[in-house]
Simulated scan of single mutants.
Amino acid sequence: MASAADGELCLAAAEKVDDGQTLSPEEIEEARHACGRAITATASIFQKYQFEEAYFAVTGSRYKY
Rank of each mutant, 00 (worst) to 15 (best):
S44D: 09
A2L: 04
A43Q: 12
L23K: 04
I39C: 00
T22F: 15
T22S: 14
G60R: 10
A12G: 05
Y55F: 04
R37C: 05
C35P: 11
A14N: 07
S44I: 02
T22V: 11
T40V: 08
V17A: 07
G36Q: 06
I28L: 15
A12V: 02
Y63R: 03
A2R: 05
A34S: 12
A2I: 09
S24H: 02
A2P: 06
P25H: 09
A38F: 00
M1K: 07
S3M: 06
Q47C: 01
D19G: 02
Y65S: 11
M1T: 12
F51I: 01
Y65C: 09
F56R: 06
T42I: 01
T40K: 06
A43P: 14
F56C: 06
V58W: 14
Y49V: 06
F51G: 01
A12Y: 08
C35E: 13
T59V: 11
A13C: 00
A57I: 15
K64F: 03
K64R: 09
C35T: 15
M1P: 12
A14W: 14
P25C: 08
P25S: 12
A4C: 07
F46K: 08
P25W: 10
I39G: 00
E26T: 06
I39Q: 01
C10S: 12
I28K: 11
G60Y: 12
A38Q: 00
D18Q: 03
E8V: 10
E8D: 14
R62F: 10
A2M: 04
A41G: 15
M1Y: 11
G7C: 04
E52C: 05
Y49F: 03
A34W: 11
Y63T: 07
Y55C: 05
I45E: 13
P25A: 07
A12R: 02
A57N: 13
K48D: 06
T59W: 13
K64L: 05
F51R: 01
A14K: 06
A4P: 08
S61K: 12
Q21L: 04
